[in-house]
Design a protein around this nucleic acid. Structure first.
Lengths: 222, 222
DNA sequence: CGGATAGGTTTTGTATACAATAACGAGGCA
DNA sequence: TGCCTCGTTATTGTATACAAAACCTATCCG
């Protein structure tokens, strides 16, 4: 979208993700217009995108709230993401060029360097990790698959998960990526699918361990 | 959404699906505002939804066009839909209540009646079919799964596919649904998944046979 | 005291005017 | 002729004013 609505989107998103506004809290379009410095029209456009991404939700009477995801919500997303991203890995194995595989290697060298620092550079890890997964999805050459995954790989989930990672968790992630690259180099779709599956399912369990056992709490607004 | 933008959405959608406007043709917000009888503001909201559903697409410079899906696009959607809807069927098998299974039976009785007419009542078939699949997705109790599938089960694809069905194709569909109900009654998720898989994959091949071999033609605008 | 309700306030929805940008076409120049 | 440039028109983007709907609270009646 164009300039104002794009800025609004980025600002609102950052505002929500920064945690400076509590989950379940109400927002108004006017507030957001003031925060972002544009009028309500582009704010409404930005808000619609964020609703789509489930960062914001509307009550039955159109009031706007910061979404509050339950553990079950997040498990659901991990399950779906695993299903789709395994498919992407399998397709990518057949389609990645030699050069693209080299790029994945480079990305993962960077990721590895970030996690081998003490303390690990989590921001750099997150960025390299995002780029790595994105490259695989792009290589799957399935635009709608990419579109679906975009709304499943949500920043709040990834953030909350990454914050619970120990250094050894991060190192295991890096090793998974190495193995994925090996599977791609061997053009072995089954292998790639399997590695991606365990990679993501382990991520879920790391998250779940940190959050505690399934206790199923509120979605949406108060 | 509220009244005006909802009306706009329905009207524009119907307008596009009616085929009275060719794939690849440009639309302007002003035109649509006139057609729908509301101002550009709700039209823009409706258009954004339709873009999301891929019925409309925007050029790199924000011009609006009626989407033109290639055979490959449609195969991609069938593949993704199969993946997700098989998952839904498996989950539904564990969750459907006895009453819900009875409702599915009723829906399929209606569908069967529609296809057993000569000529078959395709509109009634489509409606019963839609309701049947929707009930399964709802029973899967996975809101995000439902959301993802909503954008994969697109009217233009279903329409184009259904138009190519012979009466025996339609009857086979009805039998598939019967077998799904049997799988649900047996609480057999694997069975349900398998039936759903062949059901959807056959639908794709029926479509592909009618359209001709993979010849890969233009997506999007001219 | 409980609950319905009426009126003022807040919030969202729509129309419209204007601004910015992209497409188009005509005229000039090599 | 080829093709740039610039001005005109078409189209999308944004701000703002107003309309509609939802919320809240004080008040009234049982």
């Amino acid at each position: 979208m164009s300039r104002a609505s794009e800025r609004a989107y980025a600002k609102i998103r950052a505002h929500v993700l920064s945690g400076s506004v509590a989950a379940g809290e109400q927002l108004t379009e006017d507030q957001l217009a003031q925060i972002t410095g544009v009028s309500r029209t582009p704010v409404r456009e930005a808000v619609r995108r964020l609703e789509d991404e489930l960062l914001l939700v509307r009550s039955d009477t159109k009031r706007l709230f910061v979404a509050d995801w339950s553990r079950d919500d997040i498990e659901e997303m991990f399950v779906l993401r695993q299903m789709l991203e395994c498919h992407a890995a399998e397709r990518a194995a057949k389609r990645l060029s030699r050069g693209q595989i080299a790029e994945l290697e480079a990305l993962n060298r960077d990721l590895t360097a970030a996690v081998d620092q003490t303390p690990p550079d989590v921001a750099r890890f997150l960025e390299a990790n995002r780029a790595f997964h994105e490259a695989i999805i792009d290589a799957a050459h399935s635009p709608r698959l990419g579109q679906l995954l975009a709304r499943l790989v949500e920043a709040p989930v990834v953030l909350r998960t990454a914050r619970t990672y120990s250094q050894s968790d991060l190192r295991q992630s890096a090793r998974d990526h190495d193995e994925l690259v090996a599977a791609f180099a061997a053009r072995d779709g089954d292998w790639a699918r399997a590695v991606m599956g365990s990679h993501l399912r382990r991520a879920f369990h790391t998250f779940a361990r940190a959050v505690g056992p399934a206790n199923d709490q509120g979605t949406a607004e108060p």
